[in-house]
Design a binder for these strands. Structure first.
Lengths: 357, 357
DNA sequence: ATGAAAGCGCTAACAG
DNA sequence: CTGTTAGCGCTTTCAT
C-alpha cells in the first residue's frame, strides 16, 4: 500500500540500510553513504513520494518524539479559563520548535484513576502536567513506567520537576500595592485549596500586611476560587458585613475571580476603584477587558509553558544541566482597578519591587 | 526492559498467540482461548504488570487510534477566543468516549506549508480541522496520503466532510430580533473574509432587512473581525458619522467583536442598549460577562466538536450511514444588550424562529 | 483450542 | 562505503 524504505532501495539499486542512513543524514558524523548513492536515493524517494513511517521508526528506536499534555480538572475550568490556552500556546511553541509532537489529555477528576493507566502509554516519551491534583494516580504511573514528567504550577516536591512562578512574591506585590495606596482593610479571596498556588500567595499577602503594621483580619481572608461566580459570591458575603467591617480593597484569586468581585461591588451600588480597589492575579488577556481594566499580578504564563516543554525535552535528551524547579518571576501590571495614586511603602522605598526594576 | 507479551506467555506457559488473543478478547466471536488458559494469562499479566505496547500494535494492525486536531491561525486567535476551547472540549469528550487519542497541531499560517508534510504522518488515522484556511496545504496532503478529515466551520465543498452551523439563519435571527425591536438603521460588523461563516451570516442579515422592507445601507455593513479591538475600531468609525447616520443597532461578528462595539459605544457617551442595541455571535461563556450581558446567536460549539469527532470516527470505522455535511441549528440567546421589548415581526408572526420552537 | 511462523517498516550492529 | 541480518512487540494466517 504505502511506499516503504524497501521500494526506495530497489529503485535506487541499493540496500535498505543505505536508504535509512541517507534519509537520516542529520544524525551524522559517520558519513555512511557516498554522495552518489545518496543522490540516487533522494531521487528515488522523491519519485516514489516516500514518507517515513514514524510508527515503525518508534518501534525500532524506542523513541516517539511525542509528549503528553495533561490539562487539569473537568471541562469547565479548561473551557472558561484563559490560563490554559496560554500555557498551551507556550508549550506548543517550544514543542514545534524542537520537532516534537503533543498528545492531549484532560483529567476529569473522577475518571482520573482509571484513565491514568490508558494514558501513560508507550506512545509518549514524557508528560506535561498542568496544575496536577496532589493525589493524582498519574504520578505513580509515571514513576512505574519510568516516564519523566514536569508539572506546571505544582507543589515543589523533592526530586520532581516543576515550573512555578513566584507566588509568594505575587501575593506580596498585590498586598503592597494596596497598602501603599493607603488601604487598611484588605480582603483576600483565596484560590481553591487543592491548587498549589493558593497558600504561598496568601502567605505573601499576610506577611506584607504584618510588615506594614496592619493587623491581619482573619474574617477578611476567605475561601473563594478561580471562577467569577465564586468571586462574586465571596465578595457579596464580604459586603454584607456592614460598612464598618467592609474591606476597602480586595485581592482576588485570579482575574476571573476579580471580575466576580467587581460585579458584586457594582451590584451593591459601590464603585471600583473609588469605594473598593480590586487586584487580580494571572494577567490573562481577560484582565484588559474588565471594567475598569484590572490591576493584576502578571504571571509569565506562556513562558512557563515554554519552559516546561523545554525542560522535559532537555531531560529526554539527556541534558542534566537544567534547574529542575525553576521559579519564574512575577510582576505587577497596574491598570485602573485600584486608582492611580501611589504613596511610599512602609519600608521607606518609593515604589514596590515590581516597579523598582 | 519493559515486560512484553512474551514474558506473559512464558509465565502462563502458553504461546504468545494465546496471550494476544486473550488480552484482546473484546474482538471476539472466535473464542480462541479456553477459560483456564485465559485465567492463567490474566494472572500472569497482572503479576508482571504487563501493559500492551500501542506502537507495536499499531505497526502490526495499521491502526493507531489517534486523531489529529489542527487549530486555526497563529497563537493569538486560539489564545484569546473562547471558541477554540469549546470545540476542543466537545472533541475531547467524544474522543475519550470512543477510546481514541488526540494529537494536537496548530497552524501558524506562515509555516503551514512546510509543516503540513510533517504533520499528516501515519501516526494519525484522521484529522480534525477547525476553521481551515481555504488554500491549506493540508487538504492535498490528506488527499494524497488518503487520510480522512472533517473540518469544523468550513465552506461545504462537494465530497468533503464538514460540520457547520446554520450561519444564514444565524444572520437572520440576529437581524430579525433587531428589526422586531423597531430598529431601522442596523449595522453589521462582518467577520474576517477568510472565514467561511462571514458571508452567509451577512446574507441572512441582508435578506431579513429586505424582507422587512428596510433598505440595506451598504455603509453600515463594514469589514471587521473576531477580535474586540477590531470591533471597537469599526464601531468608532460608525459612530463618527454623526447622529443622523449612526446605526441604532449593531450586529457584531462574534461575542468578542460585540465587546469592542459596546466599549466604543460607551466611550462615546452612549448607552447599550438604550442608544444602540448590540447582538453578538457564538454565545461563548464570554457573552455572560459583557456589560450588559450579550444577546447573541447561540452556536452549539461543543456539539459541533463532538459531532466532528463522531463523524470522523464513524468514517474510520467504516460507517457510511452518516451525513457528511451536517448543519447544526442555531438559536438566539436573549440577554440585555438589546433591551427587552419585543414587537411582532413584519411577516405577522409573533416571535422569531428562535422563539417559536 | 492452541502454537509456529511470517510479517508490519524501520534501525542498528556487524561483517565485508 | 555498503549490504546482510536480527530484532522492536504485536497481530494474524495457517496448521495442528
Amino acid at each position: 500500500m504505502a511506499v516503504t524504505i524497501r521500494d526506495v532501495a530497489k529503485l535506487a539499486g541499493t540496500s535498505i540500510t543505505a536508504v535509512s542512513a541517507a534519509l537520516n543524514n542529520s544524525s551524522g558524523s559517520t558519513i555512511r553513504v557516498s554522495q552518489a548513492t545518496r543522490e540516487r536515493i533522494y531521487d528515488a524517494a522523491a519519485q516514489l513520494g516516500y514518507v517515513s513511517n514514524p510508527i515503525a521508526k518508534s518501534l525500532a528506536t524506542g523513541k516517539t518524539k511525542v509528549l503528553g499534555l495533561m490539562l487539569p480538572y473537568a471541562d469547565a475550568f479548561v473551557d472558561q479559563n484563559p490560563f490554559c490556552n496560554q500555557v498551551m500556546s507556550g508549550i506548543m511553541r517550544e514543542v514545534v520548535h524542537r520537532h516534537y509532537n503533543l498528545m492531549l489529555y484532560t483529567a476529569t477528576s473522577g475518571i482520573q484513576k482509571d484513565r491514568a493507566a490508558m494514558l501513560v502509554d508507550s506512545r509518549i516519551e514524557g508528560l506535561l502536567l498542568v496544575m496536577p491534583p496532589e493525589d493524582s494516580a498519574i504520578f505513580l504511573k509515571c514513576k512505574k513506567r519510568n516516564i519523566p514528567y514536569v508539572s506546571i504550577l505544582d507543589r515543589p516536591i523533592a526530586g520532581s520537576w516543576s515550573v512555578n512562578s513566584d507566588d509568594y512574591t505575587g501575593g506580596r506585590m498585590a498586598a503592597e500595592h494596596l497598602v501603599r495606596l493607603g488601604h487598611k482593610r484588605i480582603a483576600h479571596l483565596m484560590g481553591s485549596q487543592d491548587v498549589s498556588t493558593s497558600q504561598p500567595r496568601a502567605r505573601g499577602f499576610r506577611d506584607t500586611l504584618e510588615l506594614a503594621g496592619i493587623e491581619v483580619q482573619e474574617e477578611l481572608i476567605v475561601q473563594s476560587g478561580f471562577d467569577w461566580r465564586l468571586g462574586m459570591d465571596s465578595t457579596q458575603q464580604l459586603l454584607q458585613r456592614g460598612l464598618k467591617h467592609m474591606p476597602t480593597a480586595i485581592f482576588a484569586a485570579n482575574d476571573l475571580c476579580a471580575e466576580g468581585a467587581i460585579r458584586a461591588i457594582r451590584a451593591s451600588g459601590l464603585s471600583v476603584p473609588d469605594d473598593i480597589a480590586v487586584v487580580g492575579y494571572d494577567d490573562t488577556w481577560y484582565a484588559t477587558l474588565t471594567q475598569p481594566p484590572l490591576t493584576t499580578v502578571h504571571m509569565p504564563i506562556e513562558e512557563m509553558g515554554e519552559m516546561a516543554a523545554r525542560m522535559l525535552i532537555a531531560r529526554l535528551e539527556g541534558d542534566d544541566s537544567i534547574d529542575p524547579q525553576p521559579v519564574l518571576p512575577v510582576s505587577l501590571t497596574v491598570r485602573n482597578s485600584c486608582g492611580a495614586f501611589s504613596a511610599p511603602f512602609v519600608d521607606g522605598t518609593k515604589s514596590s519591587p515590581a516597579v523598582r526594576q
